[in-house]
Amino acid sequence: MTLDDAYDNSGHIPDAAAFLDRWADDAADWRGVEAAIGRARLNLPYGGAPRERFDLFLPAGRPEGLAVFVHGGYWLRFGREDWSHLAQGCTAAGWACALPSYTLAPEARITTMTKQIGQAIAAAAEQVRGPIALSGHSAGGHLVARMAMTDAPISEDVAARVVRVVPISPLSDLRPLLETTMNSKLGLDASEAASESPALGDLRDGVSVTTWVGGAERPAFLDQARWLGEAWQTPVRIAQGKHHFDVIDALREPGSAMLRDLLGDSPAA
C-alpha cells in the first residue's frame, strides 16, 4: 500500500485544473503590468543551470526589506512564472519580493534544490538591503523551512538578515514520501528523507517561524504542519475553509494575517 491518496491534493479539490489555469493567467497579467511600469527585474541569474533564475518585483518606493516566495509542486513541476501575482501583497506593503525557480526532479535531488534556494536568496539579498522574510507553499514551504535551520546552506551574513519564515502547507517530514509512487521521480532514500526534514532538525536562533495550513486540506498536510510546529515549538495557524490550492491567496491581500506574519509591522502588511 502507498500513501498516494493521502498526499493527493488535486484529486480532492473540486475543479482543481481551473486553479492551475488561473494561476498562470493571473501571474502573467500582473508580471506584465509590473514590467511595463519598471518595477520588475526578470530572469536574473543566481547560478549557471537553466532554472537557476529569479524574478524580483519592487515596491513604489525604497524597499523596507526583501521577501522571497518559493513555489511548490512536489519538487516536480511549476516555475517562478506561475506565481508572480503572489508578490502583490508584499510590494503593496513596501517590500521587494523575489521568486526563484529551481531544478526539478528527477533531474535534481531535493538536497540540490535546497542548495539552490540558498543561492537564490543570497543573490536576491545582493539586490535589496534590509531584513529578509521567506515564504513558500507545499514543497516550497519545505524549502523555506530548511532555510530556517541551523544547517541551512546560506552564509552567516545572509542568515543574520532572515527574521521571519512562513511555511504554507509545508512538507516538514519527508519520510512518508518514501511510501508514495512519486518517489520514483524524487529519488529519496531514508538518509536524505531524514536530513532534509525540517521537523527532524534544529531551528536557527533568532528566526520567527509561523506555519500556515488550510483547514480543509488533506489530513496529511494538517499533520505535516502540526509536526513542524511541535518540533520547533512555533505557532501553527489554520485558515478555516481553505484547501491546498486557495490557502496561498492571502499573500495577495494587504492586511491579511498571513502577510502580517510574514512582514511583521510593515504599515500595509
Results as ranks from 00 to 15, higher is better:
Gln127Asp: 13
Gly130Phe: 00
Pro131Ser: 08
Arg109His: 12
Ala125His: 04
Ile110Val: 11
Ala98His: 05
Gly130Ser: 02
Glu107Val: 15
Glu107Tyr: 15
Gln127Pro: 04
Pro106Glu: 01
Ala122Tyr: 00
Val128Asn: 08
Gln119Pro: 00
Arg129Thr: 12
Ser101Val: 12
Lys115Gln: 09
Ala96Val: 01
Gly94Ile: 11
Gly118Asn: 06
Arg109Gln: 13
Gln119Thr: 06
Ile117Phe: 08
Thr114Trp: 00
Ala122Arg: 01
Pro131Tyr: 11
Ala122Ser: 07
Arg109Trp: 06
Trp95Pro: 04
Met113Phe: 02
Ala122Val: 07
Ala120Met: 08
Ile117Trp: 08
Ala108Tyr: 14
Ala125Gln: 04
Gln127Phe: 06
Cys97Asp: 01
Leu99Thr: 07
Trp95His: 13
Thr114Tyr: 01
Leu104Lys: 05
Gln116Ser: 04
Ile110Leu: 07
Ala120Leu: 04
Glu126Lys: 14
Gln116Gly: 07
Ala93Met: 07
Gln116His: 02
Val128Trp: 00
Ala105Thr: 10
Arg129Phe: 05
Thr111Glu: 15
Arg129Leu: 08
Thr111Pro: 13
Gly130Arg: 03
Ala96Asn: 10
Cys97Ser: 01
Ala122Gly: 02
Gln116Leu: 06
Leu99Asn: 10
Pro100Lys: 03
Ala120Glu: 05
Arg109Asp: 14
Gly118His: 10
Leu104Pro: 06
Ser101Ile: 05
Ile117Arg: 01
Gly118Ala: 03
Gln127Val: 08
Arg109Pro: 03
Ala124Phe: 02
Leu104Gln: 12
Gln119Cys: 11
Thr112Met: 15
Val128Met: 08
Ala105Trp: 14
Thr111Val: 14
Ala98Lys: 11
Ile117Lys: 01
Ala105Cys: 15
Glu107Ser: 14
Ser101Arg: 12
Met113Leu: 05
Thr112Phe: 13
Thr112Pro: 08
Ala93Leu: 06
Thr103Tyr: 08
Gln116Glu: 15
Val128Ala: 05
Pro131Ile: 00
Thr112Ile: 10
Tyr102Gly: 10
Pro106Leu: 09
Ala108Met: 10
Ala124Thr: 04
Thr114Ile: 14
Ile117Met: 08
Pro106Tyr: 02
Ala125Glu: 02
Thr114Asn: 08
Thr114Leu: 03
Lys115Phe: 02
Ala93Val: 08
Ile117Ala: 09
Gln127Ser: 15
Arg129Trp: 01
Arg129Ile: 07
Ala98Asn: 11
Ala120Cys: 11
Thr114Met: 03
Thr103Asn: 11
Ala122Leu: 07
Ala98Gln: 07
Trp95Lys: 11
Ser101Thr: 14
Gly118Met: 04
Ala125Val: 00
Ala123Arg: 03
